[in-house]
Design a protein around this nucleic acid. Structure first.
Length: 287
DNA sequence: AAGAGGCCCTGATAGC
DNA sequence: TGCTATCAGGGCCTCT
């Protein structure tokens, strides 16, 4: 579920529900995520208060009272669940309510608070967690990333100068976290549709006007997705209680063979593999 | 340097 | 109560 809007939704819920709470216990049931869960991960977290839950790109950043930051990336299939405790000050596993939403398998990490526990679930294990020593190091880590779409740095001049001379297609650039941070496979297609740009168009063929469209439309799509609670595809995607609604607003994603939704367009939505990821676009209005 | 492709992993679904 | 192939919201690595 994890592109920028979905991670932001998780961040908002987490910030609301665990900020100010103290971590009592951490259990790592499976250290083999995308990267090995670092040695001592549990000890870095234990007895720390959650100061704030932030986000950069698709990364969740839990700011701890010991100045360290717990970084979480959900990969392709990672989800976070909060389970309430029956009674306070009881940390044993059996003291927690059974949650019908909590998956039976792939609950790799459990973080216990007094009255609830946070569960990191990830069937494919493409996600990972890390501990960053301090805020300076976190800044350094994200410095090599491209700007977020909401940043003033992501403007048409930046886009135009980045793409000129580039042979690679624009769809791949939207997924390239060195160019722009936080956009994934769904929203890349949706943004290009709104901008009326063909996903296979080479970077160097985008004119100033199209770059301006990308600047604006990226913000429009992502903000709208956040406002609607993100996208929940494939049945259950309970983002801490809530389900997203943006999937109802998809104009092209998973709409192969259907009519273009633009009122004056008679095009058909096509699906094409670009750089090993599926891309959806209208064969008529995207140039 | 830029771009293409492989790979990490499990589960849902389509087709036989 | 089949099997097998394909595909899935990400991103790192290697090779050319």
């Amino acid at each position: 579920m994890p592109e920028l809007p979905e991670v932001e939704i998780v961040r908002q819920s987490l910030d609301k529900k665990i900020k100010g709470k103290i971590i009592k216990k951490v259990i790592v049931k499976n250290r083999n995520l995308r990267f090995k869960v670092p040695l001592g991960f549990e000890d870095f977290l234990k007895n720390q208060k959650i100061i704030e839950v932030k986000r950069f790109s698709k990364y969740l950043n839990l700011f701890l009272s010991n100045k360290r930051i717990c970084v979480i990336h959900l990969g392709m299939s990672g989800t976070i669940h909060l389970v309430k405790s029956k009674k306070k000050n009881n940390m044993t596993n059996t003291s927690f309510y059974h949650s019908p939403f909590l998956p039976k398998k792939h609950n790799h990490i459990e973080i216990f608070f007094d009255d609830l526990k946070l569960v990191y679930n990830d069937p494919r294990r493409f996600g990972f967690v890390d501990i960053v020593g301090n805020y300076k190091l976190l800044e350094k880590k994200f410095k090599k990333f491209g700007p977020e779409p909401f940043s003033s740095k992501f403007n048409s001049n930046y886009i135009f100068s980045f793409l000129k001379n580039k042979e690679k297609n624009i769809k791949s650039f939207l997924l390239d976290q060195n160019f722009v941070s936080g956009i994934g496979n769904i929203y890349a297609s949706e943004i290009l549709y709104l901008s009326k740009i063909k996903p296979s168009k080479k970077g160097r063929y985008l004119n100033k006007e199209e770059c301006k469209k990308l600047e604006n439309d990226s913000k429009i799509i992502l903000l709208d997705a956040i406002r609607k609670g993100g996208s929940s595809i494939r049945n259950f995607k309970n983002i801490i209680g809530k389900e997203g609604n943006f999937q109802r607003n998809f104009k092209v994603y998973q709409r192969e063979g259907l009519k273009c939704k633009r009122y004056n367009c008679s095009g058909i939505i096509k699906k094409k593999n670009i750089s090993n990821r599926s891309s959806f676009f209208c064969n008529s209005c995207q140039k």
